[in-house]
């Protein structure tokens, strides 16, 4: 019996009659890096937003750690261990790198109805934020404003923030978006180091990264999953080659 961390049952979403996702059935095994690939407009980002709770699903269920979280609020899911990154970098430009990370950690560390002591002097948050920054190659950038970072570094920070508070599931929405081959190789290494410790749903267009990282791959085309399997299985799959990979490989 495989250890399933998250599964969706017939999850659907349409916008104004337009079908974005139809009967999505996805199973994420604990500890795996599961890539979700598919052509543009296939519904990958919609799927991530449904899992994180930003988009309410029209029908179907999401089971996470044995609990039905289909109607759970975004912040509650995050605290339960579902953490996501954004395709469009969503770091706090006006705050320093460490403050960004400290804020992310703060979200999982008790409540923040603390009005008096300076947050910047919180030892616990600072130590954790330092560790996280160093782990993601940002050791030179601790005190820089996030807005001043190079794009690649911003992407690293974006992913680092999702790791705050030790989530059990990472939803990474195109972490390599726009960072070029060098940056993408570095981020691939950083993500590879997470293998086994986190369950990752990786939405990515960069096929080198996908093939290097993924334990399993699901292919999403027009809102429906047409195949799920190991890298080799997917490479060999006729339907996939037709619908999607044919153009790439």
């Amino acid at each position: 019996m495989p250890d399933i961390l998250l599964s969706t049952e017939n999850l659907c979403k349409s916008y104004a009659g337009l079908r974005a996702n139809h009967n999505l059935n996805l199973q994420l095994l604990r500890g795996e890096i599961h890539a979700l690939i598919g052509p543009n407009g296939a519904g990958k980002s919609t799927a991530v937003a449904q899992l994180s709770g930003e988009l309410a699903s029209d029908s179907g269920r999401i089971i996470f750690e044995g609990r039905d979280i289909t109607r759970m609020a975004v912040h509650a899911r995050a605290r339960a261990g579902v953490s996501r990154s954004f395709q469009v970098t969503s770091v706090f430009d006006e705050m320093s790198v460490l403050d960004n990370l400290a804020l992310a950690i703060q979200a999982h560390h008790g409540h923040s109805y603390r009005f008096w002591r300076a947050a910047k002097k919180d030892r616990f948050l600072n130590t954790q934020a330092n560790t996280l920054a160093d782990q993601f190659g940002l050791e030179q950038a601790h005190d820089l404003l996030a807005g001043t970072l190079a794009h690649g570094e911003k992407r690293q920070l974006e992913v680092a923030m999702t790791l705050a508070g030790n989530p059990s599931l990472l939803l990474l929405d195109e972490p390599m978006a726009g960072i070029g081959p060098g940056g993408s190789k570095k981020l691939t290494e950083l993500l590879d180091a997470l293998r086994g410790r986190y369950t990752v749903l990786l939405v990515e267009h960069d096929m080198d990264a996908v093939f290097a990282l993924a334990d399993r791959i699901s292919v999403l085309v027009y809102g429906e999953i047409i195949a799920t399997g190991s890298v080799d299985e997917i490479r060999r799959d006729k339907k996939v080659q037709q619908a999607y990979l044919g153009e790439v490989c």
Binding site: V74, F86, E94, M95, L103, R114, A119
Partner: peptide
């Protein structure tokens, strides 16, 4: 400058992100 203040500013800059962080 407190923990609360930092959360408040986060909400100003990007409320959606704050929710996905767990606030």
């Amino acid at each position: 400058g407190s923990h609360f203040g930092r959360v408040l500013q986060g909400c100003k800059y990007n409320e959606k992100r704050m929710q996905t962080l767990g606030f």
